[in-house]
Design a binder for these strands. Structure first.
Lengths: 328, 328
DNA sequence: ATGAAAGCGCTAACAG
DNA sequence: CTGTTAGCGCTTTCAT
């Protein structure tokens, strides 16, 4: 692999001149520059970023720690990060921890060893812990879920407001107060969505009843069972807000299995806007999370912190968008 | 950021000893080792891989060039790569070209500048070209689709055989010869699947007729239109093989829209096993591509090439698996 | 406008 | 067992 030394020798100049020429820093006589570029080309020279990084400190890479690459929503965020980071000259080091805290720790370590310029962490139960391990000088931003308390910048979706909007829609078209298929406990997004549901009902002058809330655990199967429970239990049910699309899809199936029809008999609204929402029958009305935007904001924060700018520590909450389809 | 020099000074030893101690290479007196580790710990020392890479040549990173991070199938492969590369100590540099050839070129360049130890390229129309640009000494493997001719190792799915299996199933349960919703032309996977369909019919003593093949272009909308065409055109149709799941999903919708039922009236088999196949009604019978396996094989090839082992240049074709669900 | 030289942090001989 | 030293490829003063 050719180095600037090789180029220097071949072009009959010093290495410093080659460096200046290739980087267009400092003065270089035009002819010298041409000559150098030509030689570099001949030799198929590819600069070594490691070496460059050693002297000027920046590797121009961001690290992304993600708990599951197979999660389409996560990847949409990563793609957003990619799209915004790329024009800025940043490359992405992406590692999947598979939700394993030990792996998370190791990956973070590796990324520090690789001297990434910044770190994007998808929040997991282990994240708070992880942050204490991290070098405080390494710019980091936590994404997707909110950490209870932290001085690290955070970007997430406004689950609460999204839920309120979803329930608002149901309230406006249903005859009875909508039921809810809730998500797992202890998960901030899930809790915020549940709270949004409750408050939306209250705003409409309805007091939320526990028997109209069934847990679906964010899963398809859970949503299915929850819906069946709701359906057998109570009458006067013509609308359901599911905490996420997966459980909404399960609900759709349950509705069909008991011989009812959506939206005619029961309307359903989900949350997330996963790909399948468009392909099922009826297609699912849902709250779309602004994934690209999350990526953009995250990169923005990172870049600011890299350049030394101050970044507000208050978590940024981005609004979701109601997407109406056939199910409501 | 602490360096081995800092540790050396503080521990009262030479830098070489520190290096030996921390890497457990060469002899170090046990007490010295303990002392060094303790100091390293105190200083919060994190080794600099760039520096290490400069001397021993290897960065322990693989580059992944992917045309669309939002494609769940692609990401499943990447996750497979991650899972197999991680235990081997490799980190992944993942960049999304968004299918843009210019970007592809630039990303490849960047990865070479970053001195990745190997490169995984998702095949795109521009890949063949790209390969000519690449340093021949950089281990690379092309994935997902097959390049017409190339001396680079390749891993892909046996689309042909998968299609034959799918059609075989249809033949065994349908009364009439199945129709096909084909994919885009000029795409190797699509062509292989079409060929598999034709050959499966022939093996069964049926001569494939063009009027029973309608293009769906691998899209949902395309599949929908293709199915409607098939349905209005001919009678004696009770089975369809769609070149991919997306178009199969479109077909499902078309069947419903004209008032028919699947699988009762028309059976459908897709290809890919995307996530939505499980959530639609009826759930979709399809051919699952062995994504994890693709990742495993790719990493395997890369590692072999890195360690200098020879790798067969014959493309590796992995078999898909028939997943039976409700649609057939 | 350009070259010599001093590192960046680390490893690998090579002497003790 | 351990310290000294010479780079790895590149950027950046500092002279010239």
């Amino acid at each position: 692999m050719a180095t600037i030394k090789d180029i220097a020798r071949r072009a009959g100049v010093g290495v410093a001149t080659v460096s200046r020429a290739l980087n267009r820093s400092g003065y270089v006589r035009p002819e010298t520059l041409t000559k150098i570029e030509q030689v570099a080309d001949e030799l198929g020279y590819v600069p070594n970023r490691q070496a460059r990084a050693m002297v000027n400190g920046s590797t121009q890479t961001f690290g992304i720690l993600i708990p599951d690459m197979d999660n389409a929503l996560f990847m949409r965020i990563v793609r957003g990060i990619n799209d915004f980071a790329y024009p800025l000259g940043y490359s992405l080091l992406v590692m999947d921890s598979r939700g394993n805290p030990e792996r998370e720790r190791r990956i973070c370590r590796t990324m520090q060893e690789l001297r990434v310029d910044g770190l994007v962490l998808f929040a997991t139960p282990g994240t708070a812990n992880l942050l204490t391990t991290l070098d405080r000088t390494l710019p980091a931003v936590v994404i997707d879920r909110l950490l209870p308390s932290s001085d690290v910048p955070q970007v997430s979706v406004d689950h609460y407001k999204g839920a309120k909007d979803a329930v608002g829609l149901l309230l406006s078209v249903c005859q009875y107060p909508p039921a809810m298929i809730s998500g797992p406990e202890q998960v901030t997004s899930s809790e915020a969505r549940l709270q949004g549901y409750r408050d939306a009902l209250r705003s409409a002058g309805v007091s939320p009843k526990d028997e109209r809330i069934e847990s679906g655990g964010y899963t398809y199967e859970g949503g299915y069972q929850a819906m069946r429970g709701l359906l057998t239990r109570g009458r006067s049910l013509d609308g359901v807000f599911a905490a996420n699309d997966l459980s909404a899809l399960g609900a759709l199936r349950a509705i069909r299995d008991v011989g009812l029809r959506c939206p005619d008999d029961v309307r359903v609204v989900g949350f997330d806007d996963i790909e399948a929402t468009r392909y099922v029958y009826p297609s699912l009305t849902t709250i779309r999370q602004p994934m690209d935007e999350i990526g953009r904001v995250a990169v923005d924060m990172l870049v600011k912190r890299v350049t030394g700018e101050l970044v507000e520590v208050d978590p940024v909450l981005l609004a979701g968008k109601l997407i109406r389809r056939e199910s409501c």
